[in-house]
Structure formats: C-alpha cells, structure tokens
Write a protein that binds this DNA or RNA. Structure first.
Lengths: 157, 157
DNA sequence: TCTTGACCTCAAGTTCACTTGAGAAAGTAG
DNA sequence: CTACTTTCTCAAGTGAACTTGAGGTCAAGA
C-alpha cells in the first residue's frame, strides 16, 4: 500500500522535501536526539507530522546563531514520544522570544554605540568601550568577553 | 631596550592581552590576512596600535555571526600598511551599521511572527509562514530558505 | 655567559554541523 | 519475480576557526 496506510507518518524523504533539509541532516538530527523518529519493522525512520515543526524550529533557531546544543536544550521541554500540544509549544516559544528580545537588545546597544563612534569619527572600539570595558580582558576569562554577550545556556524564566 | 624604543609598535603578547585574544588566534588572523603584522629583523611580529582596532572589529563582527571571510571583505576597505584614518573607519562602520539594522529587522520580524503564533497558541511554523512560505522549499534552492535570511555578501551601499 | 620567557614555524588535532561514499536491505511498480 | 528507488549503517571527509605540540630562535636580566 502507498502513502495512505501509514497513519499520517512520514518517510524521511517526505520530511526532507517538506522542510527543505537534506536527508542526511535529518538523520543527523535523529542521531543527535533533536528529533526522535520511530522505525518501521524493516528499520526505516518514520516521522510524526509534528516533527516537521521541531525541524522548523531547529532551522530558525540556527539562523539566529543558536547551536544545536542550545536548541536541544530548548526542545527538551517538548515531549519526544507524543505530539506536543499547545502548552508545550507555548512554553518553548516564550523562551525563544525572550532570547530574541535579548539578542535584539544586544544588537541595538551595539548599533547605538557604533553610532556614537561614527558621530565622533573615531570608531575607537577601545575608547568607546564597545569592546573590553576593562582593557585587560584576558584576565576576566579564557576567551574574549564583549559587551554584546549572548548566552542562551540557562533559560532565565 | 625595553618597550619604549619600539616606536609605538606592540608585540603579539601585548596585543593578545589588550584584546583578550589568544596569541595563536592573532597569528592565525595574520596568516589569513585579517591583520598585517610587520616583522622585526629577528622575525617577530610587531603590530600597530590601530591593529587592536582591527581585531576589535573582528571580534565584534564575529559575535554578530559574520564569518572571517565576510569580515575580511569589510576590512579590505581599510589600508593594511598605514594607520587607517577617520574616513577609512567611517566607511566600514557605516556598512557595518547597515548590516546591524538588517539583522535587527530580521529578528524583529521573526519575533512579531512568533508573537502571532503564540497568540493563536499554535506555533505552527508551517501554517504561520514563519518558515518556508511555499512549503516545497526544496524546490527553491539547495539549502532551506527562511524568512529571516541574512547575507552580508554584497555591501549594498 | 647563562638562563628564562616570549616568540617563531609547521604539522596535526579539535569541534561543530553536516556531507559523501560504500555496501546492503527494504519496499514499490510493472 | 525483477528492476528500481529509497532507505539503512558506518566510516570517513569537509570547512571554518582555531588550538596544541614539537622543536627551535631571540632578547633581556642576573
């Protein structure tokens, strides 16, 4: 029997063409636990329609610069084995929105600073404190710490 | 003679502690042509003070998700061998600001879309057209194309 | 002069997010 | 049943952005 028998489940190829993702990428996300495909007796992956939503979320969050690790943390709030409901998604999207706001704020702060620097004609990132408020940045940590910090590690809710 | 003889030039170690970058990273940027250190007769890298500015720019732009390749393109507008002046930096920072605005706009659009989805309680990324306006995204290109596209490839000025 | 620390080069290793390839099995169309 | 497409696993490769390590040099202080 063709596609009608499969209880609304989708093959990896179908999911690929629906999301625009490569089949290999979807397999990778499955291996990494970002989605949880079930299997046919023959061992083929079958996806819930709601998995498309998960994958969409992954794509968008990635575009925003979140790592798969961070995205995985967000998605952990969703049930893997049942279709997520309203409440489930609301929780995620609220947290996501918070991160968006944070990121927008960071870019705006940077832009405004930059405006100031253009205004004074220097773009002296040292002087304007856009970068490395304390000069000796190397003492404050391993990597460089900027004013524009991101961090999605902990959900601040 | 100690640091006073060096005509205002900085060693790689000094640059590292000033910028918070690892020495190895600075060497890498030098190899990649993102900065252009001169050398002492003995072969040691010496940097202009203005190179700190270049490196600061690299750091900030990276935080915003620009690749070294893209950053290199921006920095190409600066003279490598002389200390960049007001005008030089103004040009860069204006282009940079444009990219910031673009990125802020993209995030705001996404946030507003997401608000709508939270409002209707679905976060149906498919339905809400946040992602893949035409469903069959795979036909519109190789990778997934989102509403939130970035691209800094061509400077639109 | 000797020693120490900062610096050098070059090759190889690392992490992330995948892709590619080989070889095999599953499922569908005729 | 045959042919063909899709899918499977597993290993290895890719590119970006560095880091690490080995082995050697340079320069300033005791």
């Amino acid at each position: 029997m063709p596609a009608s028998d499969r209880q609304g489940l989708l093959t990896i190829g179908e999911v690929a063409s629906r999301t625009g993702l490569a089949v290999s990428a979807i397999r990778y996300y499955d291996d990494e636990g970002l989605v949880a495909a079930r299997r046919t007796p023959g061992g083929k992956r079958m996806f819930l329609r709601s998995d498309i939503r998960r994958l969409s979320f992954i794509l968008i969050a990635q575009q925003l610069g979140f790592s798969l690790e961070e995205i995985r943390a967000q998605l952990k709030q969703l049930p893997l084995e049942r279709t997520p409901n309203k409440r489930d998604w609301e929780k995620i999207s609220r947290g996501f929105r918070a991160h968006l706001d944070e990121r927008i704020g960071m870019l705006e702060r940077l832009r405004d600073r930059l405006d100031g620097c253009i205004g004074c004609g220097c773009l002296s990132l040292e002087t304007c404190k856009l970068y490395n408020p304390g000069d000796k940045a190397s003492q404050t940590g391993t990597g460089p710490r900027l004013v524009v910090q991101t961090s999605i590690g902990e959900t601040s809710t």
